[in-house]
Design a binder for these strands. Structure first.
Lengths: 256, 256
DNA sequence: CGTAATTTTGACTCCGCTCAATTGGCGTGG
DNA sequence: CCACGCCAATTGAGCGGAGTCAAAATTACG
């Protein structure tokens, strides 16, 4: 604890609270129901009170707003407390690529760590709240708490593994397989957070889904219609109900 | 130093030298010309002699052999001392996806860190030599040497950024743009290692290039032929000479 | 309540895939 | 050393899946 307190002054002046009430937190990591999914994942109770001090502030991000943008100086990592985000890249020619969708307990901004600047833009797809964790504090704490260090590495590695999965999806699946994989993935992640596995609200547009899956929005829309015709799902705008998850799985694993 | 020595016995029994002479290293990190690209990248001279102890052994891998395979227990990270590797994934249906090609100074195996098992297979595309670095040692040393910790994180983050680049490539580029991007990327990496930017030997097959780029081998072959017809490159089997790098760049950034 | 944004659907096109045949390299063994 | 066989690469012909362009329908939002 003392070491952390000692470090804070160094970091503090940099982080001027941007727009919101963040002084005292109603919820600490210890009582946060997303803890297991989040950065303090593998940290035992004995170290948790120290690790909690990593959370420097809370920040609200309104739907449509950017949490950070490409090229912004990297200083902090964000944990999603509530809400939903997309991460995207734009190359020199204005081409957008959505690299992922993120929900409660997941971490944003770690890719900035390589170059000192965020490599992509994080945009809230609904009103959200994040925990602000200065990287300097994480670094410091990771040295002192091995379980945190281990978990931090695991989180980074898991992001790499996830990306490889997306590469496989983009590199070797057909359009309908991609959408099936996408729906199954969303379903699983909702379940882990206590929501329905079969009934959920898409927070992103067809265009954003298409960008993520390497398809055009028209193709995504057609596939939704076709899945509905095949009694795999029910879609009404952004509301999706999965009727036949096994059917989706079969579609996904169908050789050819 | 004492701490490291103390740790070694714990780890040692696990790592029985597999097939090669690895007792004494002719080359240490300090005198390795790939150091800047490698794990000890940002580590100053004062800490280098300690960090060097991370390299537990050297290992030779013959062309075609696997350095590790999917599902193998994760214990070590490998740094490529010489040679060339491909990393690939196979999903349940036998579908292969090449997730990357790796050369001198680059790290292999870090994705295993998330789950305790390697997530993909690393196969040597030419006779190669790697430095074997037990993760337990890296972890330990990262706690003691902040510059190593920082660099380790940076390396992980850069892999994520790289993967996002590939996602953009797969998700929103046309075939010829993909191949142009691929050639430009290879060229840059060869240059950093002191090889020719314009004249190199592809160590992978058309099929492997295709897998990486989300294309079929026939398409890759046709594109090589077309690039040659357009006087952008000269190809003869695995030998490539870039004649017009600007032309390739233009092709890459041509909107539509 | 009106305007903009998103989604759906249709018709047509074209890029990259499939299938197939041929050529070329390279290592192995007679 | 050459012939054989195997694997990699090239090239062609034809096809089909996803993209493009366009218009209409529905919804979201100020």
């Amino acid at each position: 604890m003392p070491a952390v307190i000692a470090l804070k002054p160094v970091v503090k002046p940099i982080f001027t609270p941007m727009n919101q009430t963040n002084a005292k937190f109603e919820v600490t990591c210890g009582s946060c129901n997303l803890r297991e999914l989040c950065l303090p994942g593998g940290v035992g109770a004995e170290d948790l009170d120290r690790v909690e001090n990593i959370v420097y502030a809370r920040k609200r991000v309104r739907r449509g707003e950017a949490l950070f943008g490409v090229g912004d100086e990297f200083r902090t990592v964000y944990a999603i407390r509530s809400g939903f985000f997309k991460m995207s890249l734009v190359d020199g020619d204005g081409r957008e690529q959505v690299t992922g969708f993120f929900m409660g307990g997941e971490l944003l901004g770690m890719d900035g760590l390589g170059s000192g600047r965020y490599n992509g833009t994080a945009i809230a797809l609904e009103d959200s709240e994040v925990c602000v964790m200065p990287y300097a504090l994480i670094e410091q704490m990771a040295r002192e708490v091995p379980s945190l260090q281990r978990h931090l590495h695991a989180v980074l590695a898991r992001e790499i593994v996830r990306d490889h999965g997306v590469m496989m999806l983009l590199g070797s699946m057909r359009a309908e397989e991609r959408l099936a994989a996408f729906l199954i993935n969303l379903s699983k992640r909702f379940v882990r957070r206590g929501y329905s596995a079969s009934d959920f609200h898409l927070r992103m547009t067809r265009d954003e889904i298409g960008s993520y899956l390497g398809l055009k929005l028209e193709t995504v829309s057609r596939l939704f219609s076709q899945f509905q015709k095949d009694a795999l799902i029910e879609v009404e705008q952004k509301h999706v109900r999965i009727l036949d998850i096994d059917g989706l799985e079969r579609l996904l694993h169908a050789r050819n």
